[in-house]
C-alpha cells in the first residue's frame, strides 16, 4: 500500500518544494519507489529544483483531463533510480485539479510507487486543500518565525478537519514538524525562536531541523536536490529526516552554533 505524504506549510517561501525534492530523492536513494507531484498549478517550480524543467511535455492537469496518459507525463529522474516527477501545469488555474481527477491519478500511482510525495502550494486555497486531502502523513515545514508558525498551526487545523482521514473518521493524518532555515547563532542571541519553542507551540513530533545554509540556494541554482550534497549541513539534515521518516532513531543535529576559532571571534569572518 502506497503512503501519501503531503509537504505543506500554509506560508510561502519556507522551503516546501526544497523539502519535497529532497525527501523524495532521499527515499528513492534508499531504494524506495517514489513519485513527487507538484500541486502548485500555475506556478510550477518543482521541475526546476529537480533539474528536469526542459523535459516537461505533459503535466498533472493533462492527465486529469485525459489529454495524456500518466506514463507520458511522468518524468523519470536522471540521477536517481526509483524516482519520478509529475509536474504541475503552468497555464491552467488551480480549479483544474478536481477531486475525482486527483484521486484517480493517486490510485494509479499507488500501483507503481511506495511513496507519493505531494508538494503543496502556499495558502489554504483549492490547490493546497487538494494536496493535503488524500494524505496519510504530513510534513509541516516551518520557519522559526511568527507568521510561519501561526500559518503552520492553521494548516494543522485544516488537516484535522478537512483531510479525507478527518472527513471519513479514519485514523488521523500522521503529522511531522520540520523546522527549516534554522539559525543556531541567532537563537543563541535571542533573536530567533528555538526548536523547543516551536515544538511547544505546534505540539507535534519533530522529524528534523534543517539549518539555514548557503548550500540550499546552490542546490536550486544547479537543479540538484540539496539532499544529494552530502558534504553540506542542509544535505545531511535532510538525509537524517529521511532516515527518521523510515523509522531510524537518529539524534537531531545542527542545533548549536558552530564554534569559531579565536581569530574568527576577534575579527568576524567568513565562517
Amino acid at each position: 500500500m502506497a503512503r501519501i505524504i503531503v509537504v505543506t506549510s500554509g506560508k510561502g517561501g519556507v522551503g516546501k518544494t526544497t523539502t519535497s525534492a529532497s525527501i523524495a530523492t532521499g527515499l528513492a536513494l534508499k531504494g524506495h519507489r517514489t513519485v513527487v507531484i507538484d500541486f502548485d498549478v500555475g506556478l510550477r517550480n518543482l521541475d526546476l529544483l529537480m533539474g528536469c524543467e526542459r523535459r516537461v511535455v505533459y503535466d498533472f492537469v493533462n492527465v486529469i483531463n485525459g489529454e495524456a496518459e500518466l506514463h507520458q507525463a511522468l518524468i523519470r529522474d536522471k540521477r536517481t533510480e526509483n524516482l519520478s516527477i509529475l509536474p504541475a501545469s503552468q497555464t491552467r488555474d488551480k480549479e483544474a485539479l478536481t477531486h475525482a481527477g486527483v484521486e484517480k491519478v493517486l490510485n494509479q500511482l499507488a500501483k507503481d510507487f511506495e511513496y507519493i510525495i505531494c508538494d503543496s502550494p502556499a495558502g489554504i486555497e483549492h490547490g493546497a486543500l487538494m494536496a493535503l486531502y488524500f494524505a496519510d502523513e504530513a510534513i509541516i515545514t516551518t520557519n522559526p518565525e511568527v507568521s510561519s508558525v501561526r500559518d503552520s498551526d492553521r494548516i494543522l487545523g485544516i488537516l484535522q478537519s478537512k483531510s479525507r482521514r478527518a472527513v471519513e473518521n479514519l485514523e488521523p493524518v500522521k503529522e511531522h514538524l520540520l523546522v527549516t532555515r534554522y539559525n543556531p547563532e541567532r537563537v543563541t542571541r535571542g533573536e530567533m525562536l528555538n526548536i523547543q519553542d516551536v515544538e511547544e507551540i505546534l505540539a507535534i513530533p519533530l522529524i528534523g531541523v534543517v539549518p539555514e545554509s548557503t548550500s540550499v540556494l546552490k542546490a536550486s541554482n544547479q537543479g540538484v536536490p540539496v539532499v544529494c550534497n552530502t558534504d553540506s549541513d542542509a544535505g545531511q539534515a535532510y538525509n537524517d529526516v529521511v532516515a527518521r521518516f523510515l523509522g531510524e532513531d537518529i539524534p537531531h543535529r545542527f542545533l548549536e552554533p558552530v564554534k569559531k576559532g579565536f581569530l574568527q571571534r576577534m575579527f568576524g569572518g567568513i565562517g
Binding site: V146, R150, D153, E191, D197, M266, G268
Partner: peptide, 29 residues
C-alpha cells in the same frame, strides 16, 4: 567580531516576545 565585543551583550530577547505572542494568538485561533 571585535566591534561587537564592545557592544552591550544584553540585547532585547525578541524571540521571547515572539513566543509569547504566538502562544496567545495560536490559543485564540
Amino acid at each position: 567580531s571585535l566591534m561587537q565585543l564592545f557592544r552591550s551583550r544584553k540585547e532585547d530577547n525578541s524571540a521571547a516576545i515572539a513566543k509569547e505572542r504566538l502562544q496567545i494568538i495560536v490559543a485564540h485561533e
